[in-house]
Simulated assay, not measured.
Amino acid sequence: MSFDHFEYKGVKFAHKVHSEKSISYVENELKVLDDDIFNVTYPKSGTNWMIEILSLIKHNGDATVCQSISSYERAPWQETIDFPEQEKKLTQPRIISSHLPHHLFAKSFFKSKAKIIYTMRNPKDIIVSLFHFTKILYIFKESENFQQLIEDFVNGNALYGSWFDHVKGWMQMKDDSRFFFITYEELLKDPRGSVVKLCKFLGKQLDDAQIDSVVKHSSFNSMKENKMSNWTQLTSDILDHAKGSFLRKGVSGDWKTHFTVAQSEYFDKIYQEKMKDLNMSFSWEQF
């Protein structure tokens, strides 16, 4: 995965999007509020989907805000250069997105009552999503070689570093009452049940009609048609819309159309080795 980068405490970040100052600000200076809601993921794991769900829950299922304010303004990424300005416009409870690993997260969070929703996804599907994403986002040099992208991914040679380290780092909090983890696959399989669980975690009371509205307006088709959620408003020098869509398929298991049998077996072997000490099981672990 080729991009113009720098390293901060062993993790790769992208020039023009991040800076040492912007990451240090989050880590050391960000004032976390007790009602803050953090939407944390490794890239391409359902970040924007969760932004939509959380935005709709915040507004009791009313889609007006989701249809009038872009997702990256509603729940900006805290580690980016633009965040300090975006932070000023957020209304409480603030929804803040992040791809940061656990060890670089805001120190003030750990002294607060704020909450984190951590969304995970089958790493093979993440690789496929990244493969297509590198074709359209300006910071990347397009990945022509799928095998090389697999190699970069398993070796942590990627934006935000190793997926394995990211997951294992955040799973240290799995028993913390401020931490809620869910998978992309669970969201697909049971969207309504997932919304109900999220509401309970957030202490948000919604009636059946409001929950139905959250589910409806956070569906892939709804988001695909929403200019405030599908990133079509980004200029072509940032996102090359001619080469693909930001919201591509919204499915799980697409890796089966991209990985060869040999590539799948190669990845599975590395996955089992790197994840053997986690003592957790996920739906995609069907070796």
Results as ranks from 00 to 15, higher is better:
K58G: 04
K58C: 06
N60V: 08
G61R: 01
G61W: 06
D62A: 04
D62T: 13
A63V: 11
A63W: 08
V65A: 11
C66H: 02
S68P: 14
I69F: 08
S71F: 09
Y72Q: 13
Y72P: 01
Y72F: 15
A75M: 00
A75D: 03
A75I: 01
P76K: 04
W77H: 00
W77G: 06
Q78S: 12
Q78F: 03
Q78A: 13
Q78V: 12
D82V: 09
Q86S: 14
E87M: 02
E87H: 10
E87W: 06
E87A: 09
K88E: 02
K89E: 11
L90F: 08
I95K: 07
I96C: 09
I96E: 08
I96Y: 01
L100E: 10
L100V: 14
L100H: 11
P101H: 03
P101K: 00
H102W: 13
H102C: 11
L104K: 05
F105Q: 02
A106D: 01
A106Q: 07
A106V: 05
K107T: 11
K107L: 03
F109N: 02
F109L: 07
F110A: 09
K111C: 08
K111T: 13
S112Y: 12
A114W: 04
K115W: 07
K115S: 12
I117E: 04
I117K: 05
I117Y: 04
Y118Q: 08
T119G: 11
T119P: 07
M120N: 06
N122E: 11
K124T: 09
D125C: 15
I127G: 07
V128C: 12
S129P: 06
F131H: 09
F133L: 10
T134E: 01
K135S: 15
K135V: 02
I139W: 00
I139Y: 00
E142K: 15
E142M: 05
E144Y: 11
N145R: 08
Q147L: 05
Q148G: 13
L149Y: 06
F153Y: 15
F153C: 10
F153M: 13
F153P: 06
F153N: 04
G156T: 11
Y160E: 04
